[in-house]
């Protein structure tokens, strides 16, 4: 049996059988996640799988069954994730959300999580539609795209990546559920990034949003994806063995010493240029395309725990002696 760096087999990273529709993009994402977690060697007991409500938010049941999961209330996963991380900063917090959960009901919490740079890998499984309630538009639906019955969306779209970059996010990426080559190393880079990692994954809804009027269908994605870069993930202290032509790769060193090598595809894209990233997102949208890749990264921003100057030890493990005012100091309170 093949085992990973910490001696665990791939099966450990699997979960319960999916209950989503056959062909759902979310199932592909789950499989890529399993691969990424397995290869990375994530310790199951250190993983906290957080989610809100919706099709996407069911998926934490389908990977790493051993890990603790928290399927909270609609749109409020960021707050629960914040509490969990503060209680035990040793946890690797993985949040799974959807476009409704993030961009509509949960937009406020999403915004403030990003502002705080909570150390979390936050995945948006973005299909532009409400699946569980049978096919209403979400706020990430593009203007002019239609529902299955032909009704067009007339309201402006929320671009998760554009918004996150605007808010000061420190790791922002977009990919496609069918693109494991791009997504798996991207996820692993996010695992190594300390701070909020936003990964917006276009994930077609085969039941309600895979038709010709949709801009989140398999065929639309194939024709309109603009790949900014392809990441390679290099673990801490691991040697870079692949040769790259000079000038074709951007190298970013992450908090834990891991590196992400960004192979430039379409053009000379700089993933450390916040304003450039925003420009690319807007330009591609204007051209009817959507840009994928690690769009922006800044590994040098303190996360919430660091800003709060928290001790390294998990707060959950502290006892009376650690937490109570001493008897001597107590009496001075009532002088």
């Amino acid at each position: 049996m093949t085992v990973n760096l910490i001696g665990l087999g791939r099966d450990v990273y699997k979960g319960l059988p999916t209950t989503l529709c056959a062909g759902c993009g979310h199932n592909s994402i789950t499989n890529h996640l399993i691969k990424a977690l397995f290869e990375y060697g994530v310790q199951p007991h250190k993983l906290a799988k957080m989610s809100g409500i919706g099709c996407s938010s069911k998926t934490p049941a389908y990977f790493v069954e051993q890990a603790h999961g928290f399927n909270g209330v609609h749109g409020r996963m960021p707050s629960a994730a914040t509490g969990a991380k503060l209680a035990n900063r040793e946890l690797m917090v993985l949040g799974i959300s959807g476009d409704g959960d993030t961009a509509s009901i949960g937009l406020g919490q999403f915004v403030h999580m990003v502002r705080r740079n909570l150390d979390i890998v936050y995945i948006v499984e973005n299909n532009g539609v409400y699946g569980l309630t049978k096919g209403q538009f979400s706020a990430t639906a593009d203007v002019g795209s239609t529902l299955k019955n032909g009704t067009p969306n007339e309201y402006s779209t929320i671009d998760i990546c554009g918004l996150a970059i605007e808010l000061g996010a420190t790791f922002v990426a977009r990919s496609f559920s069918g693109d494991g080559k791009q997504l798996v190393p991207m996820l692993q880079a996010a695992f190594s990034h300390r701070g909020t990692s936003i990964i917006d994954i276009i994930s077609p809804c085969v039941t309600f949003n895979d038709h010709t009027g949709s801009t989140k269908s398999y065929s639309y994605v194939k024709d309109h994806e603009l790949v900014a870069n392809m990441p390679d993930f290099i673990r801490p202290r691991e040697e870079v063995t692949v040769d790259y032509e000079p000038g074709t790769v951007q190298r970013v060193t992450l908090e834990d010493g891991a590196q992400v090598l960004l192979r430039k595809v379409d053009r000379d894209y700089d993933a450390t240029d916040r304003i450039g990233a925003l420009r690319t997102i807007h330009e591609s949208r204007a051209q009817g395309e959507f840009v994928t890749g690690l769009l922006f990264v800044d590994p040098n921003v303190p996360d919430l725990c660091e800003r709060e100057k928290m001790i390294e030890k998990p707060l959950k493990d502290l006892n009376e002696e650690d937490l109570r005012i001493s008897r001597e100091a107590w009496t001075t309170l009532f002088d």
Partner: peptide, 13 residues
């Protein structure tokens, strides 16, 4: 958000 953080933290111990 305040109560969500409380339950996230309570869940984590």
């Amino acid at each position: 958000a305040a109560i969500g953080m409380v339950f996230g933290a309570g869940w984590a111990g």
